[in-house]
Amino acid sequence: MIGNKSGIAFFFLAPALLAIAIFFFIPVIAAFLISFTDFDIYTLGNFSTIRFIGLKNYLELFKDDLFWTALGNTFLFVILAGPLSIFVSLYAAIILNSKIVKLKALFRLSYFMPVVTTLVAVAIVWRFIYHPNFGIVNYFLSLFGISSVDWLGNPDLALPSIVLMAVWKNFGYNMIIFIAGLQNIPEELYEAANIEGANNWQKFKSITIPMLMPTTIFISIITMIGYFQLFAEPYVMTQGGPLNRTLSIVQYMYQEGFRWWNMGYSASIAFVLFFIIFIGTMIQFRVQKYLSSK
């Protein structure tokens, strides 16, 4: 510390903290309040028509089939894409971290390329890759005699197809964090295990997995938070269809709020999303505490 100079500290902090207070914290509180009102398109024109309606928006959500559909789709997406991306990134990290690998930097770079590129642009690329008539995926399958599949048009396949695209897009990010985690495991642990004659699987199970646990929890939290906010992939690839089978919570919030201007209702959807993310994060923190106490 360099002394008690609150005045100067305030001067340094003010621009950022004011911006965050006015354009982040106040909107969060305002959204919470709006979620208890009937803010709609008429309110937008004449603010005095706003009415406080208590929990009505939230109760309404319970009865809203489309909301449950969006919630179910989003959960399915998180449950499928979350573990799959974590598994793929861990696998890629382990083989990339192996000592015998040459050209590591080049491989790492190519696995990372999808992470940095614009989601909307690559979602468009994938929409054509999945195309039922001329898509590359169907071409590849046709080489094995499998007939054309309408990946994004089939209600049962659309969401899993988006899951695969999301895993492709994101695994490189977690891979980098896993590599950092792997490099932090002391080499002596493996050497000691070698002396005791442990095989690769035993070493993986009793050294790598437990030592990577904090990294894995961190990754599963950020992955879950990110995936619950699913929006651009279905917006670009399926517009939420077919039969609303890829409609996500955020897209439903967007439609209610910014297409139909049901802002009170939309705010309540946003808070349900926040609540789910909050609970999900807390559960994983608990798991981490439990595991580290063992």
Binding site: K5, I8, F25, V28, A31, Q229, G257, L273, F274
Partner: peptide, 28 residues
């Protein structure tokens, strides 16, 4: 690098609010 009252608290509030998804702020 500066000392001021409530610093830790303020910083913790900021850190924990990172869990709030930005979609919540969008309407207001």
């Amino acid at each position: 690098k500066y000392k001021f009252s409530g610093k830790e608290k303020l910083f913790n509030v900021l850190l924990s609010s990172m869990i709030i998804p930005s979609q919540v702020t969008m309407l207001p």
